[in-house]
Design a protein around this nucleic acid. Structure first.
Length: 909
RNA sequence: GGGCGCUUAGCUCAGUUGGUUAGAGUGCUACUUUGACAUGGUAGAGGUCGCUGGUUCGAUUCCAGCAGCGCCCACCA
């Protein structure tokens, strides 16, 4: 337990310094929580489990705004559940991020003029491990600065020993179940990273290109005879092995089965008929390049066409391109187009906009290539995963994302899982150099099935997302049946951005169901994305990230977290404006100072009573009101957190603490706390002030953990208190404290006070000047007696201090001061002497006000006059309208009286 | 080509199954440095809830169309 700088036992008001210094308290409390093991979960606990696994950030990355947002939301839920009696476990960890991390290290090498090939595989991988050791702690430290209450004793890494074993285990089982296969297919190839990537890793971008129309001369035809094909990629023509036309296309019917000459290549290719061809596009003839286009690949298979590789793994022309061999694909395109034009075979060139696929890591244009890769047969895995969501065993929140999920899952294609890089889980498959056997095993085999000891391990590694797909169970110890796995799987909640719904969430569901037989989590909360100034997605490789740690340094972690929470409305992107953080920083500071006020007014060393021990009848209106409001706030915050309505939870606490507790309860407590006040009243106020503040701090703790913990310790302790707020019980709603009558009465009192203030403001009466408002009840005022008694009893303690006014409460017969302005509150007039000059303008103001109220009354009256409304609207709505009308009418009468009075005064003067 | 979302105060945004006089932060105006807080207090100005129709007793809210913006998915070269 860290030393506090002061305590209530010393001197009141000095326990907390005047201004909150977040940096002073944050590190201290985080360490205190760690020292006490507050975040460490116990698998043998009898408490019900609540578990979240963190979306593992890139181990060598640093915290960006998206992480900050994502982890703040997770921390709020886990802290809430921890306080609320659950055995709460938040499993942290990091991802090895295959291509991304390899790219970083390769760039470091490139700066020294080296490539990974200069080092060789082993040395290169060692170097990546070294880089991980060097930079791997950064993001973890940053998460701690944010206040993330992860169980660091359970921190995992996707390439640590246990998780690597889980990866091999899963691969082997899927392989033996026939769900992993190896084959030669057309894949997305990144020529820069020199690896295959999955369909998901390709990002399509609308690009302005050109459509080249090229004539392929008909063999045996007249000069100028032959189909014209349209292509955006003329350089792939050396891979052409056919021209395809639609089978029902009259124009080309006679060509099918004949041959055309492939220009510049001196080779002949057949004309085939295939329904894939769109007759409307271009000339209706399509060049078929099975080795470099996914559609053409399929056409080629249907027609048994050969595959001619025209581009190598660097996207340079191969020997199939003859004299263009060795040229980069774009350089080759230029020359080929020029040569075609010279040969008179370029019929025309037109601008054409089309989608170009790029590598999502390095933005290089993807080259579809035929190559041998490993794939996951995905349909058998996707079907149960679809059912789990459809049957409600997994809830996706907000619900709209379920549509997206289904849409993707139902059209899912096999997953390319092999990568031709070095950093990652090496595929546990061994090829025999003697025979053609392939051994797939968890542990390194020595011989193949034919007994040959000539085994060579696959050089490819697995897609990074393969290991993250296992995260919810691999981090808990799978394939061993660990206590953690028993206790915490299935996990309770996953919090993530929609950008990895397919990459990660869907695959976790598939793998969880397959290997655990149960869905990996119950709820998936999909939050919006934090975007940069241009609305661009922030990403590690684009380098457009904003460092949230700067905001934490400047405004404190609590203010920063509260801001993110307040902006966390479901289904909307977060565009963060710094001014908002400053605004919520002010809120944190406000709480700080409210706590200081309370501490200044708590007697040194005195025991502060419990509200429950105070006889109910000793509580006055303000006490009953604030306790009722607090109870409602507890209810609201719990409901909002349960529904993942984070912004609503934040707003409920904000409004309660600032606009009810500070603005009203503290202000009207000052009378009873002043020297010479009744000691019993003082003690009662102290009890309520402290108890309500403690409750509010507990409510706020999941969002703003540091400042609440700090204040909580400065406040008087009670026997049986938890040692720290972080593990104290989350407030439970107390229905007995809800007091609708007190809320209504307080509302009226507040309205009277505001009315007096408004007159003061409107007529520029200096705040120091005492005013003497008349509160005059009307003759026809229904519950006037009760409210009049209420005001009379409270005028001196509430109204006069807050309005700086001496109040006279009168009935209809009493004449107000001659030059009085009036405000009307629920049919009751608040009249204040403002002087002759001002009152001459008062008539106009009253007329305007009267017209407004009469308009409202008329509107309501018309509504009530409609038979349909009375007949069809719910009873309570109609009742509300009637009450509204009565109030408007009472106000209008009072205003009319005042207008008459003012006119008479002016006429008499 | 499908699918989804957004459009509310000068700016950034809430608004939970349709029902008080549509809210917050920030900015703006006036007053205010009274012993919690000037990172404060009091009061105020500021919105035909994108447009047009429809459903309804009643629409910012539900439906359709339109306009503008954004995103996701997709094999028209």
């Amino acid at each position: 337990m860290p030393e506090k700088t002061g305590s209530v036992q010393e001197r009141p008001g000095t326990a907390l310094p005047k201004a909150l210094e977040p940096a002073r308290i944050e590190a201290r409390w985080y360490q205190a929580w760690l020292d006490r093991g507050a975040f460490t979960a116990d698998a043998r606990s009898p408490k019900p489990p609540f578990c979240i696994v963190i979306p593992p950030p890139n181990v060598t990355g640093s915290l960006h705004m998206g992480h900050a947002f994502n982890n703040t939301l997770q921390d709020i839920v886990i802290r809430y559940k921890r306080m609320d009696g659950f055995e709460a476990l938040w499993v942290p960890g990091t991802d090895h991020a295959g291509i991304a991390t390899q790219n970083v290290v390769e760039r470091q090498l490139a700066a020294k003029g080296l490539s990974r090939h200069d080092l060789g595989r082993e040395a290169f991988v060692e170097r990546v491990w070294a880089w991980k050791a060097e930079s791997g702690g950064t993001i973890i430290k940053q998460l701690r600065r944010l206040g993330a209450s992860c169980d660091w004793t359970r921190e995992r890494f996707t390439m640590d020993e246990g998780l690597s074993r889980a990866v091999r285990e899963v691969f082997v089982r899927l392989y033996h179940d026939g769900l992993i296969y190896r084959g030669g297919y057309i894949v997305n190839w990144c020529p820069k990273d020199e690896t295959a990537i999955s369909d998901l890793e390709v990002e399509y971008e609308e690009t302005q290109g050109a459509l080249y129309h090229i004539r392929y001369p008909l063999v045996g035809g007249a000069p100028g005879e032959g189909p014209v094909v349209a292509t955006t990629r003329p350089e792939t023509m050396f891979g052409d092995t056919a021209v395809a036309v639609h089978p029902e296309d009259e124009r080309y019917r006679d060509l099918v089965g004949r041959e055309v000459e492939l220009p510049l290549a001196g080779r002949r290719i057949p004309v085939v008929a295939d329904a894939y061809v769109d007759r409307e596009f271009g000339s209706g003839a399509l060049k078929v390049t099975p080795a470099h286009d996914p559609n053409d690949f399929e056409i080629g298979r249907r027609h048994g066409l050969p595959q001619v590789v025209a581009l190598d793994t660097h996207a340079r022309m191969t020997e199939a391109a003859g004299r263009y061999q060795g040229l980069d694909r774009y350089e080759a395109r230029k020359r080929i187009v020029a040569d075609l034009e010279a040969a008179g075979l370029l019929v025309k060139t037109e601008p054409h906009q089309h989608a170009v696929g790029r590598c999502y890591r390095c933005r290089t244009v993807i080259e579809p290539m035929v190559s041998t890769q490993w794939f996951v047969r995905i349909k058998p895995l996707a079907e149960p995963a679809i059912a789990a969501v459809r049957e409600g065993r997994i809830r996706i929140i907000p619900e709209q994302w379920e549509t997206t999920y289904f849409n993707w899952m139902e059209n899912i294609r096999d997953w390319t899982i092999s990568r031709q890089i070095w950093w990652g889980h090496r595929i546990p498959a061994w090829f025999c150099d003697t025979c053609d056997d392939i051994v797939v095993a968890v542990d390194t085999p020595t011989t193949c099935k034919n007994g040959h000891a000539t085994l060579r391990q696959e050089t490819d590694v697995l897609d990074t997302w393969f290991s993250s797909a296992l995260w919810p169970f691999s981090t808990l110890g799978w394939p061993d049946r660990t206590p953690d796995l028993e206790k915490f799987y299935p996990t309770s909640l996953l919090v993530t951005g929609f950008d990895i719904l397919f990459f990660w969430v869907a695959r976790m569901i598939m793998m969880g169901l397959r290997f655990m037989g149960r869905e990996p989590f119950r709820d998936v909360y999909i939050h919006a994305l934090v975007r940069d100034a241009e609305g661009q997605k922030m990403s590690k490789s684009k380098g457009n990230v904003i460092d949230p740690l700067v905001m934490v340094d400047k405004y404190g972690a609590d203010a920063f977290r509260f801001t993110l929470t307040a902006l966390a409305a479901q289904g909307r992107d977060v565009k963060l404006a710094e001014e908002r953080i400053a605004g919520y920083r002010n809120f944190i500071n406000k709480i700080w100072n409210a706590a200081r006020f309370v501490l200044m007014n708590v007697d040194p060393g005195a025991t502060v009573g419990r509200v429950a021990d105070l006889p109910r009848e000793t509580l006055d209106l303000a006490d009953r009101w604030i306790l009722s409001r607090a109870a409602r706030t507890v209810e609201a915050v719990r409901a909002h957190l349960d529904a993942y309505r984070f912004n609503d939870a934040a707003a409920a606490i904000y409004d309660f603490l600032w606009h009810e507790y500070c603005d009203w309860y503290i202000e009207l407590s000052k009378v009873d706390l002043s020297p010479g006040a009744d000691p019993a009243a003082r003690a009662r106020r102290q009890a309520v002030l402290v108890e309500v503040l403690r409750e509010a701090l507990a409510l706020l703790h999941p969002i703003a953990p540091f400042v609440t913990e700090e204040i909580w310790h400065a406040l008087p302790r009670r026997p049986g208190d938890a040692e720290m707020l972080v593990t104290a019980p989350f407030p439970r709603p107390d229905p007995a404290r809800i007091d609708a009558a007190a809320e209504d009465e307080m509302d009226f009192v507040q309205a009277v006070i505001v009315a007096a203030r408004r007159i003061r403001g409107t007529y520029n009466l200096p705040p120091a000047r005492r005013i003497a408002p008349f509160v005059r009840f009307g003759a026809a005022d229904g519950d006037g007696t009760r409210r009049r008694a209420l005001l009379e009893s409270l005028a001196r303690t509430y109204i006069e201090p807050l309005a700086n006014a001496e109040v006279t409460i009168t009935g209809p017969g009493t004449a107000p001061p001659r030059w009085a302005a009036a405000e009307v509150v629920r049919g009751v007039e608040v009249l204040v002497e403002v002087g002759e000059a001002a009152i001459r303008e008062e008539a106009a103001r009253l007329e305007k006000e009267l017209a407004r109220v009469e308009g409202l009354a008329a509107g309501t009256r018309a509504k009530l006059a409609k038979a349909d409304f009375v007949a069809r609207a719910p009873e309570e709505v109609v009742e509300k309208e009637r009450a509204k009308l009565a109030a408007y009418e009472a106000d209008a009468r009072a205003l009319a009286d005042n207008l008459a009075r003012v006119r008479a005064v002016i006429a008499g003067a």
